[in-house]
């Protein structure tokens, strides 16, 4: 993995210099802020109503009523935003010709893929950290189960790792950043909605489709439950996408 750090550092610097990261942060905060406002307002209205019907209140904790819906909204925003963050990772190197510098340095493809992935993951972690303002705000109004919030964040973080790995794979396939973003988005959207097809079939097929679906693996985290099966799902999805990226880069050398 020699050289990974060099690539990671340059990549992060590239992110911090370019406006893209800031625009994405702005989009995330704007949309997230709107959703949070909407969710909290709705929750307030609901809890007012449940005060009149005491039976409802127990099923409507802050975790279920605010945190889980907020994380679901964030997941959707990230689905749209992260492919834009990862699209340049390899496509830009290719288009600029700097890819030749990387490939003729004493650095192997695995180190390149790792450096790129970790740089995007680091930036994503920072972006995700900033979304902490909303649960923090909620905590000023209501008691929160921080363990459950942390579980939700772990879920979002693991999901982001998948998004970044898939985006990196898409970026390895083309010189055009827009195509990379669209391809990444297409793959992610498909794995997002594939579970819905499970409603139309039965038995093992349904189970398989449900297992493949990103969405179904997020639910537990958002409810505050860390299930190792979900962790394994995200980790293996990420690993597979990274491996595929490395293989794509390798085969491109031979076909060039």
């Amino acid at each position: 993995m020699r050289g990974t750090m060099a690539i990671l550092r340059r990549e992060l610097r590239g992110y911090l210099i370019s406006p893209v990261a800031y625009v994405l942060l702005g989009v995330l905060l704007l949309l997230g802020g709107y959703f949070n406002f909407d969710i909290v307002t709705y929750y307030a209205a609901q809890s007012l109503r449940s005060a009149q019907f005491p039976g409802m209140a127990e099923e409507f904790t802050a975790q279920q009523g605010i945190i889980a819906p907020l994380f679901s909204s964030l997941a959707v925003i990230l689905l749209l935003v992260l492919p834009l963050l990862t699209m340049r990772l390899l496509a830009e190197e290719r288009a600029r010709g700097t890819y030749e510098l990387l490939l003729t340095a004493p650095v192997n493809l695995t180190a390149i893929v790792a450096g790129k992935f970790l740089a995007a993951l680091a930036l994503y972690t920072a972006l995700l950290g900033m979304s902490g303002v909303w649960p923090a705000y909620t905590a000023t109004l209501l008691p929160l189960d921080w363990g459950a919030v942390a579980a939700g964040y772990l879920g979002l973080w693991l999901m982001g790792a998948v998004f970044i790995a898939v985006g990196l794979l898409a970026s390895s396939l083309t010189q055009h950043q827009l195509i990379a973003a669209l391809a990444g988005f297409a793959i992610l959207l498909l794995s997002w909605v594939i579970g819905w097809a499970g409603h139309n079939v039965e038995g093992e097929q349904a189970a398989l489709l449900k297992y493949l679906s990103l969405l179904d693996h997020l639910e537990n985290f958002f409810q505050g439950v860390i299930d190792t099966r979900d962790v394994v799902y995200f980790a293996s999805f990420t690993g597979l996408a990274l491996l595929a990226t490395q293989r794509v880069l390798d085969s491109q050398r031979w076909r060039a």
Partner: peptide
Amino acid sequence: NPPLYPELTVREQLTFAARLKQ
């Protein structure tokens, strides 16, 4: 075509090369 990153300064570019060369 010299493989350079436009967003880096000359020093940063060469430092990146030094790091890549480990």
